[in-house]
């Protein structure tokens, strides 16, 4: 680290001036500059008052503490933001995994298989698919007690309906 003063020596100054002026003018300019700077040295300015220096040190101390506090806050906010991103990512990933494994019903799978195999949706298969989905929904509702008015009989009826539809499907009707 270069922390030294870089002012030219007398010799360097003279050489520098000789590049700009003729020898006599360079000598005169060097003497003028040296004399002027000597004059400044012989008229020093008073030092700042000790009270002023003390007040500046206090102000700087407060500024440093504020800077450190700001830096600490910034680190905490960054850590919190990172933690929040991780938590959200984990929550979203878990949700996606859960949904991905349970959302496709038997009816949808039937349509998916049909579309994948032939490329054209068969009208009968579509009707069957709707009926199967409807039956599945009703079964789910009964299972969770949402169709309690139907009771066990309702569940039996639906099961019978489900078997009939499945049978029709395999018969090709």
């Amino acid at each position: 680290m270069d922390t030294q003063n870089n002012k030219e020596t007398r010799e360097e100054l003279r050489k520098l001036l000789e590049k700009l002026y003729d020898q006599a003018a360079a000598r005169q300019a060097a003497e003028d500059i040296e004399a002027g700077e000597k004059l400044l040295r012989s008229n020093p300015v008073l030092e700042p008052a000790e009270a002023v220096k003390w007040r500046i040190k206090m102000t700087v101390g407060a500024a440093l503490r504020a800077k450190k506090l700001k830096r600490s806050k910034s680190r905490v906010y960054r850590a919190l933001a990172t933690a929040a991103v991780i938590v959200i990512t984990m929550a979203v990933s878990t949700k996606i995994l859960e949904n991905g494994s349970t959302t496709m019903s038997a009816g949808q799978r039937l349509v998916a298989v049909d579309t994948g195999a032939g490329g054209v949706m068969d009208a009968k298969a579509a009707v069957l698919s709707d009926e199967v989905t409807q039956a599945e929904n009703q079964l789910s509702a009964i299972r969770f007690g949402q169709a309690s008015d139907k009771g066990l009989n309702g569940a039996d009826e639906l099961e019978t309906e489900y078997i009939t539809i499945a049978s029709d499907f395999w018969k090709g009707e």
Partner: peptide, 12 residues
């Protein structure tokens, strides 16, 4: 250099 030279000369 010229500005400093002229200024210091005037000050003197």
């Amino acid at each position: 250099i010229s500005k400093v030279h002229r200024g210091l000369k005037k000050l003197r």
